[in-house]
Amino acid sequence: MDPKIQNPKSKMQWAMVVDLDRCTGCEACVVACHAENNIPTVGEEQATIGRAMHWMRVERYYEGEFPDVRVKFQPVFCQQCDAAPCEPVCPTYASYHTTEGLNGQVYNRCIGTRYCANACPYNVRFFNFYNPVWEKPLHLQLNPDVSVREVGVMEKCTFCVQRIKAAEIAAKAEKRELKDGDVQPACAQSCPPKALVFGDLNDPKSEVSRLAGSNRATRLLEELGTKPSVIYLRRESWNDGKES
């Protein structure tokens, strides 16, 4: 790594591994994310013009023509880049790099320039074009652990930072270190085929570290130099049972 880069090195480097061979595109992660993170539904009118908010989305791409069609599902969410293009462009430090390798989004600092969303090559940032409202009593479903973002504020996947913080506080209260699997973002928690695995990349024994070493590992738009913390494991083709 470039020695000039001064992202503070802490014990933690949170990362997610997405196994595209396991992902079935079922959208469980999408709804789990909505439920966990108080993401508003915007309604048909707004969704039609492109203001639907899905911190987590499952991109699908078709390959080939009938009848030789294959589909690729690819869950995309904030890649929590180490050299994130969204961070330096924010004039108010609303978007910044946390000590645990996350791209923090500080809602109260956000003035809504939307520059970060432009700079983000992954289009994973979502903007509150209006103030969200939950029709009573839908507001009772809101997760008290997570802020409700107001109008004019940018938001995005946080790797469920509230769960990370809660696990850290719990571990500290019990005077122990965090261990692999203590933190599960809502998406990874819900994923039926276990396509999403979350953990600390700095811990060589963690599941993510193991999977990140796979020869199928790649990162999204790596050539842009963003150093994402999300590792995709390529989808395989059937190889007649032989070892790849």
Partner: peptide, 15 residues
């Protein structure tokens, strides 16, 4: 805009 709010979800109010 308002109709949309009424029909779908009145998600939007001023800040």
């Amino acid at each position: 805009g308002e109709d949309a709010r009424a029909q779908v979800s009145p998600v939007f109010t001023p800040a």
